[in-house]
Amino acid sequence: MKRILIGLAASACALGVAAPTASARLYELGESTVPVTTSCPDDCFVVTRTTALQVNTNGTTYPTTAKADGRVVALTLQLGSLTDRQISFFNRTYGGTPRVQLTVLSQSSRQRPRRLYTATAQSEVFRITPFLGTTVQFPFETSLPIEKGDVVALTVPTWAPILAVNLDKTNGWRASRASGCRDLVTQTAQQTIGSESAYKCLYQTAKLTYTATMISTPKPPRETRDPSRRDTTTRR
């Protein structure tokens, strides 16, 4: 008889209310429904020696802004195809073969000027020569922490063919250049965590062809109250 009673008790537990779930969400920061094509090899424009941040994509401002706290786990690049002559020229002019890394930027409301950003996290550096002419995703060896309101930018210590050009004015990006927006040779890339840079240079009618994969931090489910239980607390 005892065995039967124990079995009935176990069955009752199994038929109880299911435990609430706490799920993370997956975001592709910078994703757009409007397809674009990189400019190279025809009329080839590249990003050089700076950290690049998309600030407007088809009217959406700061499209790489994190909507929640979480971790960034991968970088996706749409890379232009270049001729050997173009590759040789850019390698020689901008300090070596094309390389990129993802940078998480934070902006304090107390900071002045307004477009001053601090690098809070960075991925490893990716050498992209073997992937020119393709769309490639790089998973990170270590995921990057990101907070709600932070943005993700692309740091380019040398050069990278990641630009779609001749778009309308609802597209634009900024570079970590405090001045000299036509100076494409001087090194201005944010390559150190904790460094601050002013993003004063705006380049309109163009789009950076990168996105970042982010997983939000799951929040504990709210405690549910059983309506059948009466409050027996004595008030004074």
Rank of each mutant, 00 (worst) to 15 (best):
Gly59Pro: 06
Leu102Tyr: 07
Tyr62Met: 11
Tyr210Met: 15
Thr142Asp: 07
Phe89Gly: 05
Ala164Arg: 00
Leu79Lys: 12
Pro35Gly: 12
Tyr203Asp: 15
Phe138Thr: 12
Val136Ala: 14
Val47Trp: 00
Ser39Phe: 00
Trp173Ala: 08
Gly180Ile: 00
Leu53Thr: 06
Gln86Cys: 01
Val36Cys: 08
Leu144Glu: 02
Thr93Arg: 15
Gly59Met: 11
Gln54Phe: 00
Arg115Ala: 12
Pro220Tyr: 02
Asp168Tyr: 11
Thr120Asn: 09
Leu8His: 04
Tyr94Pro: 02
Arg114Gln: 14
Thr158Ser: 14
Arg25Ala: 09
Val72Glu: 00
Ala52Arg: 04
Arg225Asp: 12
Gln204Glu: 15
Thr170Trp: 11
Ala19Trp: 05
Lys200Ala: 11
Thr37Met: 12
Tyr203Asn: 15
Tyr62Lys: 06
Gly7Ile: 05
Tyr62Val: 07
Gln101Cys: 10
Ala160Arg: 02
Pro130Leu: 01
Gly30Ser: 07
Arg110Lys: 09
Thr217His: 04
Cys40Gln: 12
Ala121Lys: 02
Arg92Val: 10
Asn166Ser: 13
Thr21Asp: 07
Leu8Asn: 09
Leu202Arg: 08
Ala119Cys: 08
Gln122Pro: 03
Leu167His: 04
Thr76Leu: 04
Leu77Trp: 05
Arg236Asn: 09
Lys219Leu: 09
Ser32Gln: 11
Asp43Leu: 14
Leu77Ala: 08
Val156Cys: 03
Leu154Asp: 09
Pro218Cys: 10
